[in-house]
Amino acid sequence: MEVLLAVVVGILYAAGFYMIMRRSIVKLILGLGLLGHASNMFIFTIGRVMRGNPPVMPHGHDVLTQPYADPLPQAFILTAIVIGFGVQAFATVLVKRAYQTVGTDDFDQMISTDQP
């Protein structure tokens, strides 16, 4: 299971890296999205995977008994997902403005701030 997840994480990262190295700024945003998923999966997997045992204790219990999935990586990822959305939204809007202002979506033409 973890071996396969490792492969999934690796492929998501590779796809993300590939996308952010493209010349199109739109692809950059999609790449950032992929990298976000990759990182969440990365943290999730190295926190160990535990099938079907959420860190929620049944009613009437006052301690969580083994086995349970590690709650800490989950808390991290939960905030990371929401923050990731905020960052993605901001990057998207920034790209949109950059496109409107500069008039190109080619990164290679955005290397200097001098007037063309």
Partner: peptide, 30 residues
Amino acid sequence: AALAGGGFMALLVLLVTALPAQSRLAPYFA
């Protein structure tokens, strides 16, 4: 570069998960 980066991350996952799991925080929270 993309494949090297992805491969490296996959390798990290494999290395970490091969070690015995020992979270010191999870039992406290539980």
